[in-house]
Design a protein around this nucleic acid. Structure first.
Lengths: 189, 189
DNA sequence: GTCTATACGCAGATAGAC
DNA sequence: GTCTATCTGCGTATAGAC
C-alpha cells in the first residue's frame, strides 16, 4: 500500500473490475482486458491462471473496498439514520453510472448467479456486507433482530429495483425521486 | 390457434423461451435448444436464420402473451385496485420460479441490455406494456398523468428489486412479505 | 423438411523463445 | 516477466445429401 505505481497485477484487477461492471463478466474477454492494460494475452497467465481467478481477485478487492467504505460511514457519523443516509447518498452520487451500467454490486451478482459461476456466492457476499451493516443500523434504532433483517432486505431490494429500472429506461428524474422517498422512509423509522 | 399439435417453429419458440429464462440468452446454445426440441442443429436454420431471430420471435410471443394477460385482468375486474392486485398476485404465484431464475421479464431485459443485443429495446417493451397498463389504473384512481407514471415506475421497481433479491438469496418468506406490503400500499392509494 | 458433415471465428489456455 | 506462436473446444452458421 502507498506504492507510487500500481503493480501489473493490481492494474489488471482494476481494469477487469471496470470492464466486468460496464460490459459484464461474460462479454469481457482476455483480449479486452490485456488490451486495456497494455500487455499481451500470453503475459496474462503469468499473473492469473484462469479467467475465474481474475474474477475472484476482483471480488476480493471489492469486498475490501466495501468494508472500508462501511467503516468510514461508521466513523463519519454515530447516528444510525445518518449512516443509512450515507448509503442512499452514495447511490445518488452514482446515478449516472447506474443509469448507464446498472448497480455496481447488483449487476455483477445477477450475472454470476445466472452463469452459475463458482464465485457467485462470493459476489452475493458483497451484498451481504451491506445487509449486515444495515441490520446493525436498524438494531440501533431499536428494532429486534428479525425486523432489522427484514428492513435491511427491504432497503436493498428497493435500491436494486431502482437501479434496474434506471438502467433499463432513460428517466433522469426517476432515480433521484426514488432515493428521496427512501430518505423520507428512513427518517420516519 | 387451436391446433392439436405445436408446429416445429412454435415448439422451438416455447423451448427457447424457457431456456432463455432459466439459463439466460447467452448461455443457451443452438445445441441446447435443438436437443430440447428433439431436432438436429442443422434443421434449425430452416426455421430461423440466426440466433437473434429466435430471440426476436420469443420476445414477440411474450409480448402477445402479456397483452392477453392484461386484457384478462381488465375483464376480470373493473376496479383499478383489484387490477393492480392481479399483478401482485401473479408475482406471488411465480415466487418459486422467481426465486430460482429471477423475474421472467426483468432478468431477460437486464441481460439483453448488458449484451447490447439489438433486440434489447424489444425486451424492455415488455416492461413498458406493464407500465402503460399500470398508468391507466393509477389514472383511474384519479392521479394525474405525471403522478400515475411515477407510481407505475415505483411499483415496477419494487417488484424488480424484490425479484432480484429473492433470486440472489434463499429467503422463502421475503418475496411474500414484500408483496403483502405492496398490496397494503395499493390499498392505501 | 430433416439430416450429416463441415467451415469459421473466437475465447480460453499452453509452450517455449527472449 | 513479457513476448509470439499455437492448440483446443465451443458456438454459430453453411452446404449439400436424403
Amino acid at each position: 500500500m502507498g506504492a507510487k505505481a500500481q503493480s501489473i497485477r493490481e492494474k489488471i484487477i482494476s481494469v477487469a473490475d471496470d470492464l466486468f461492471y460496464r460490459h459484464g463478466y461474460n462479454r469481457t474477454s482476455f483480449s479486452d482486458i490485456s488490451a486495456a492494460v497494455g500487455i499481451s494475452r500470453g503475459n496474462f497467465y503469468y499473473h492469473f491462471k484462469a479467467k475465474d481467478d481474475i474474477l475472484a481477485a476482483v471480488i476480493e478487492n471489492r469486498i475490501a473496498i466495501i468494508t472500508n467504505v462501511l467503516q468510514e460511514w461508521d466513523q463519519q457519523s454515530h447516528s444510525p439514520r445518518d449512516r443509512l443516509f450515507s448509503y442512499v447518498t452514495m447511490m445518488e452520487s452514482l446515478k449516472d453510472d447506474i443509469h448507464r451500467y446498472g448497480c455496481p454490486v447488483g449487476s455483477v451478482c445477477s450475472e454470476l448467479i445466472k452463469l452459475r459461476n463458482i464465485y457467485h456466492s462470493n459476489a452475493t457476499e458483497m451484498i451481504l456486507l451491506f445487509r449486515d451493516w444495515m441490520v446493525i443500523q436498524f438494531s440501533n434504532l431499536h428494532y429486534d433482530e428479525q425486523k432489522s433483517k427484514q428492513l435491511a432486505m427491504h432497503l436493498l431490494s428497493r435500491t436494486q429495483g431502482i437501479s434496474m429500472m434506471s438502467h433499463a429506461f432513460a428517466d433522469d428524474e426517476f432515480l433521484l425521486r426514488e432515493m428521496q422517498q427512501l430518505k423520507h422512509w428512513i427518517e420516519a423509522l
